[in-house]
């Protein structure tokens, strides 16, 4: 079951509106994600609407990730074009490796490709040789 944030009633998973009070259950509060590079020192903040894909742009196919590490030393650090994504499901944020060549790690633990894991604010996520500290701000 999922709990309605407005009235606390239990609803079936994937319900769109609360049966008790009519509150939208998939409506997402604005969430900011702050990424701090521990290797390069840069900081970036962006809204997490649905998902954020981290990787490198591919001019050949026109693919552009939400966060492009091409000019941030991404090639040297072995960051794949589609390396990692963050996404929201209800109130939870997940991190998922997208089958990258050099793998992704969360707090030094390897992520299985295409197996999302919950992410907490302050977690350390490694993409190849790039280490990011990720903060979530509601």
């Amino acid at each position: 079951m999922i709990r309605c944030p407005a009235c606390g009633a239990e609803n079936l998973p994937n319900s769109l509106f609360c049966e008790e009070c009519g509150e939208p259950l998939i409506h997402e509060e604005k969430l900011m994600v702050k990424l701090v590079s521990l290797t390069e020192g840069w900081k970036i903040e962006m809204p997490l609407e649905g998902e954020v894909i981290i990787g490198r742009a591919d001019p050949a196919t026109g693919f552009k990730p939400h966060l492009d590490l091409s000019d941030k030393g991404g090639v040297e650090k072995g960051v794949s074009r589609r390396h990692l994504r963050l996404f929201r499901q209800g109130n939870k944020v997940y991190v998922e490796d997208l089958g990258s060549s050099n793998g992704s790690f969360i707090n030094n633990r390897r992520l299985l490709p295409f197996s999302p894991e919950p992410l907490a604010s302050g977690d350390e996520v490694r993409l190849g040789g790039e280490i990011l500290k990720i903060y979530l701000e509601g």
Binding site: L16, F17, G22, I26, E51, F87, R88, Q89, F114, P116
Partner: peptide, 22 residues
Amino acid sequence: GVEGERIPKEILAAAGQVAIFK
């Protein structure tokens, strides 16, 4: 592994009207 699929806005609008009706 199904996550994060966007709900079509037509369904959200219809379910919203029905929610108020209910």
